[in-house]
Amino acid sequence: MTAVDAVDLEMQPGEFVTLLGPSGCGKSTLLRMIAGIEPPTTGTIEISGRVVNDVAARVAVPPEKRKLGMVFQSYAIWPHMSVYKNVEYPLRYAGVARNLRSERVHDALASCDMAEYSERYPHELSGGQQQRVALARAIVAQPALLLLDEPLSNLDARLREQMRLELKRLHVELGLTMLYVTHDQSEALAMSDRILVMDRGQILQEGSPEEVYRNPHSITVARFLGVKNIIRGTLVDSTHARLGPHVVPVTARGDVSVDDPVVLAIRPDAITRPQPGSNAAGELQGRIRVVEFLGTEYEHEIVVGDDVALIVTAPDRLGDMGDLIELSVNPDGANAFPDRGDDSERGDVE
């Protein structure tokens, strides 16, 4: 079983790169290899121009010699040390003189808003505060590279958004180089300079958040980025596909030709009411089965044709349950990929 297979990744100083993928896709393994916790079976890893892993040359620098920072999913704050001792730890091994440490610790804690907690012990802190201590500890020694392994996954939704902003702020203020691992597409889209979408140990696509979101190269990437409508269809011409009884405008991706079976990935916000000016009928007709109010928007489940359920989000309510409505599709948000009929992709296909 290969967890990480033939991955090429190069990072620029000051860059924020995110590895995005489902659990078990190898993204954490990749991070642990870079940290030196797990040995790669082949290939090389270089940090700041220094080779830390070169399997062919039998080079394997232990983790403590890599000058990295890391934030763990469980925070990994040492419970028997005070907050101060936890944050001071990396400085001791970075060779920082004793009298200079306290200022550095204080600065790191201050930039994470934890300055007044330095004498506390971890069990006296909330989850969010422990997270901040973990972050302060990770940045205190000014690592060449900061690794973050799903650091926000144990926080509740409100704290998660707050920490997301703070991570981004630290990245900008301190000019840190950060490699971030997550399975949450909204985190990846919100923070990264560059996203690498991973699955089964391989990188499927890389690019800026906008590029990856708007221009997924495969159905798998589209699914990881939160596209909820994944439906089988047939390509009618280079810009249209048949979906049940309807024909909708799409953007054809990859190697597909007319009459080929395709899998359509349609973003929930790409399905809208027809523009008032145009001919009032849309490409689709559907009946609203469920409407949910999500606060900033409404989410509708709309049944089209025999039994194809589409998720449609809109800032306004499109109608009541049971209503039959007209819908049109924005081809920028509707991609048609070749249907390889392969099991991995069939999973969520209707």
Binding site: A35, P62, M70, F72, Q73, A76, Y89, R92, Y93
Partner: peptide, 15 residues
């Protein structure tokens, strides 16, 4: 948790 040990290694301590 083995992460407690991994953290120590990454922050510069030997085995």
């Amino acid at each position: 948790s083995s992460e407690l040990e991994h953290a120590s290694r990454i922050f510069g301590a030997t085995q």
